[in-house]
């Protein structure tokens, strides 16, 4: 039966070998530009506050997606590069199913004084513990090495 046929050698049928390669430069955006430029100079973050719902948006946005209003310039505010782990996982295998040299602790971190969160990697030798509720601080690259991308946050240290 056709459905039971199994092709074990994908190169056996006559074929054309192609790819879908494409390269990108993703601009940080207007709000993102301001956010990352601040991190390049400071050891803190920026957030924006929506006047209508009162939420402090983090990462900072040009607009509140709920109220759909533009955030005015004066509503930008500085917040500490610290937060609390809301949820986490400990990854042992990579996307190809290969074992990672060390477990990777991936966490969602609620940023202090905001209503937003950021994805981060926790630095810890104890990958067996429960990180829920752990207090963490961003471990930033040395200032002269910062490039204005998320990679300027090397990882997050337990406080």
């Amino acid at each position: 039966m056709t459905f039971l046929e199994k092709q074990t050698d994908p190169t056996a049928p006559l074929h054309w070998r192609g790819n879908m390669q494409a390269d990108y430069l993703y601009p940080n955006g207007v709000a993102g530009d301001k956010f990352f430029k601040h991190i390049m100079q400071n050891d803190s973050f920026l957030a924006t506050k929506c006047d209508e719902c009162g939420k402090v948006l983090f990462p900072p946005r040009l607009y509140c997606e709920d109220c759909f209003i533009e955030i005015p310039e004066e509503n930008w505010m500085e917040v500490p590069a610290e937060g609390t782990v809301r949820l986490f996982t400990v990854a042992k295998l990579n996307a190809h199913g290969k074992k990672l040299p060390e477990p990777k602790i991936m966490a969602m971190i609620d940023i202090d004084k905001t209503d937003g969160a950021l994805l981060g990697v926790i630095k810890s030798n104890d990958s067996e513990r429960d990180f829920t509720g752990a207090r963490v601080r961003a471990n930033l690259r040395p200032k002269d090495a910062r490039e204005g991308t998320l990679k300027d946050i090397v990882n997050w240290n337990l406080i």
Binding site: P27, D33, L62, F68, E70
Partner: peptide, 19 residues
Amino acid sequence: RRLKETGKELSFLASKMAM
């Protein structure tokens, strides 16, 4: 040719104008 806004930001600006 190239705008500094993200796609989300461009969408917001156009949507807001129409609204």
